[in-house]
């Protein structure tokens, strides 16, 4: 094993650790939402600093790798992909924090009817599932698994589109529900963006191992 291999292995470990933290942030954000657990929401917001510091560390490690090892071919693609995955993960962390801020801004728990109408449970299930799958694809360097994500992200997009309609109907039934409805719509939008970030990560995994650029296709 050459020195660069050890450095790349370390980079993968750091990225995986950040991934696990970000995934737990998303999971906790949902638990906080479903149970109206404001303490848990505050915990997610506090943990965002850890996500940010991990992002900075991985950025700096990538910079060192470029400067000290001048990686080429698959090594170059690995470091480039890691840089982008790192940014995507940090954004997912931001979105988890954003969801929790919406939870804190609501005095009362979100209406159960709203939760049901928006299909947020289904959305979360898909988000968690694809996060786990993409992590597995990243660890096992499995581009076939990474490709399965694109189809699943479409489910999120569909739910998101349907949710707008459903929430509009919900608000229409009672004008006092406007604030909660809009707040909730923002959460849905954020979850949909989590799906986009995960899709970007899957594209980076494929780029890293197959040198294929799937962006903007």
């Amino acid at each position: 094993m050459i020195h660069l291999d050890r450095e790349l292995e370390q980079l993968k470990k750091s990225t995986t650790a950040m991934w696990v933290l970000v995934q737990s942030q998303i999971e906790k954000a949902y638990k906080a939402l479903a149970a109206n657990d404001k303490d848990l929401a505050r915990e997610v917001i506090a943990n965002e600093k850890r996500v940010n510091s991990m992002e900075l560390k991985i950025d700096s490690d990538c910079e060192d790798l470029f400067a000290l090892y001048s990686p080429v071919a698959s090594d170059l693609r690995t470091v480039l992909a890691t840089l982008k995955i790192n940014t995507n993960l940090e954004r997912i962390g931001d979105l988890a924090e954003g969801i929790c801020k919406h939870i804190l801004s609501e005095e009362k728990a979100f209406d159960k009817e709203l939760l049901k109408a928006s299909e947020i449970q289904e959305m979360y299930d898909v988000v968690i599932e694809i996060m786990k799958d993409v992590l597995k694809a990243y660890i096992k360097e499995d581009t076939k698994l990474a490709r399965t994500i694109f189809k699943k992200d479409e489910i999120l997009n569909e739910i998101n589109m349907q949710a707008t309609k459903n929430i509009t109907e919900y608000i229409g039934s009672d004008i006092s529900k406007i604030e909660a409805g809009l707040n909730f719509l923002s959460i849905i939008r954020k979850l949909e963006r989590v799906g986009d970030q995960i899709t970007n990560i899957a594209e980076e995994i494929i780029f890293s191992h197959e040198a294929k650029v799937l962006k903007h296709l």
Partner: peptide, 17 residues
């Protein structure tokens, strides 16, 4: 050659493996 060589032998050489 330096971003995506076709042959594994080339890849191994340019990446120091």
């Amino acid at each position: 050659i330096f971003t995506n060589p076709s042959r594994i032998e080339t890849e191994n050489y340019i990446t120091g493996r």
